[in-house]
Design a protein around this nucleic acid. Structure first.
Lengths: 106, 106
DNA sequence: ATTGTATATCGTAAATATACGATATATTAA
DNA sequence: TTAATATATCGTATATTTACGATATACAAT
């Protein structure tokens, strides 16, 4: 029985694609790196490092947050972001699984 | 000396984002998986497995090709695609580097 | 109370992505 | 040669993304 045309995508593929989409912009990669470097959650120094307007950076932060890759909490007048390790691990897991498949091939 | 605002993104971040973008759609994840499963390069059976019109699948294939993740060659009336292992390895390398950073944090 | 600062959100313009039917192209089969 | 088949490309509609300035919000400092 060969693989048949389905009427929808696998949930796993959708999840992985969503994670990939979250990283599909250099600004968001740079944000993740910055958050990792800082080790502890940092706030809007991110804006100072990303070559985009404050509003745009805020938008990118929101997208990473929506994807679950980062968390944000308000601390007084500032906003603190940090990496959501759990989610990143989930992402890593899905990717490793994919790459393992890819390695077996060709 | 703190990190300063740059006028552009890191080349590496741009590269990684482009790879991520290539996988930022469930159809393209599914295509990669299918190509990996088939082990050898396969042709348009992909169309039979992806829940999208032939033209749309062709478009997604083109994007994966443009990103360098797959290669395509014409074999008579059919078209054969296969995974570009070199590129996938490059992607994996960049990602591993990123995730290593992320793991150190929080 | 007023001012300043950090950040999010709004409104919006422009670019890109997604999807599909229709069509073009190229090869094989009859 | 003609017909059938596989696939790419075109044209196009719609949705989403990206970016920015302007504005709102909310706290801190004066």
């Amino acid at each position: 029985m060969a693989a048949q045309k389905k009427d929808a995508f696998d949930t796993e593929d959708i999840k992985l694609a969503a994670f990939a989409k979250a990283l599909a912009h250099p600004a968001r990669i740079a944000i993740m790196k910055k958050l990792a470097e800082q080790n502890v959650c940092i706030c809007g120094e991110i804006v100072d490092v990303i070559p985009l307007a404050q509003a745009t950076v805020s938008q990118h932060l929101k997208e990473l947050k929506n994807a679950g890759l980062i968390q944000g909490t308000i601390e007084g007048v500032t906003s603190c972001y940090c990496i959501n390790t759990k989610a990143v691990e989930g992402f890593d897991k899905l990717l490793t699984k994919l790459f393992k498949k890819l390695d077996k091939c060709c």
